[in-house]
C-alpha cells in the first residue's frame, strides 16, 4: 500500500484551515440537494482530518456515514439528532480549528435545511431529484429512439425494449443506479418524484407514442397534496 500524506491541521493557521474548509464547501454547493451537499462535504472533510482527535476522526466519519445512508433512503429518525450532536460537539470540543470550522458549517446547514433533511428521512423524497435512491427513473417515450443502449447496460435488467421500440423501465425492478441515464445519448432517461406521467406499459415502436394532456398529472399532484 502506498503511503498517503496525512494533513497536519494542528500546524496550520486559522486562515489556511478556513480557506480549505470553505473551498470544500463551495465545491459541494454546486449540488442542488442540501442533504447530498452535506454527504459530500462530510465525506470530503473526513478524508482530510488529521485523525488524532476522536470527535474529528470518528465524528466526521459518522456524519459521512449517516448522511450517506439518508441520501440512500435509509435515514432513521434519530439521525437528525445525531448530526446535531456531533456538529455541536465538533464546534465545542475539537482539538483544533479544522473540526470547529467543519462543525460550524454542518450545524448551520442543518439549521437552514431542516425540512429537506426530514423529507429525505421520513418521506424518502429528494425534491431536487439528486439522490438517486429517492426518485424514479423513466424513459421519455417521445424522445426515446429505441437504441437499446440502456437495455444493455442495466445491471438488473429492469428495462424492456427491443430494436426501434420505446424502452420501458420496470420501477419495481429498477435499483436507481443511474447507469441508463449516463449512457443515453438522447437524454431520454428522466428523473421524477413518486408521480410519473402516462407511459406505455410495454415497448411500442419508437415515435408512435401519443403525448397526453397534462390534466391527469395535475390532478394527481393535487391529490397528493391533500394527503400530505
Amino acid at each position: 500500500m502506498e503511503s498517503k500524506i496525512r494533513k497536519q491541521w494542528k500546524m496550520a493557521s486559522l486562515d489556511e484551515i478556513k480557506r480549505f474548509v470553505l473551498s470544500s464547501f463551495t465545491e459541494v454547493k454546486k449540488n442542488p440537494c442540501p442533504v447530498d451537499q452535506l454527504r459530500r462535504f462530510t465525506d470530503h472533510t473526513r478524508r482530510n482530518s488529521c485523525g488524532e482527535c476522536v470527535i474529528c476522526r470518528e465524528g466526521l466519519l459518522q456524519l459521512a456515514v449517516v448522511t450517506e445512508s439518508i441520501t440512500q433512503g435509509l435515514g432513521r429518525e434519530q439521525d437528525v439528532e445525531i448530526i446535531k450532536d456531533i456538529s455541536a460537539d465538533l464546534v465545542l470540543g475539537s482539538g483544533c480549528d479544522y473540526g470547529k470550522e467543519v462543525g460550524r458549517i454542518v450545524s448551520q446547514r442543518i439549521a437552514e435545511n431542516a425540512e429537506d433533511l426530514t423529507r429525505h428521512i421520513k418521506r424518502k423524497r429528494c425534491d431536487t431529484l439528486v439522490c438517486n435512491k429517492l426518485l424514479t427513473f423513466y424513459v421519455a417515450p417521445e424522445t426515446c429512439t429505441g437504441c437499446s443502449k440502456c437495455v444493455d447496460i442495466c445491471p438488473v435488467s429492469a428495462i424492456a425494449g427491443g430494436d426501434r421500440l420505446i424502452h420501458v423501465i420496470d420501477v419495481s425492478l429498477c435499483n436507481r443506479c443511474g447507469a441508463c441515464e449516463d449512457v443515453c445519448d438522447d437524454k431520454a432517461i428522466i428523473r421524477a418524484g413518486a408521480v410519473l406521467p402516462k407511459l406505455p406499459e410495454a415497448p411500442i415502436p419508437a415515435g408512435s407514442f401519443q403525448v397526453e394532456t397534462e390534466a391527469s398529472g395535475l390532478m394527481s399532484r393535487k391529490r397528493r397534496r391533500k394527503s400530505e
Binding site: V54, I55, E58, G59, Q62, D85, I86, D89, G93
Partner: peptide
Amino acid sequence: LSMELMLA
C-alpha cells in the same frame, strides 16, 4: 458521544 463514536 466521544465514547459512542469510538465504540461505533
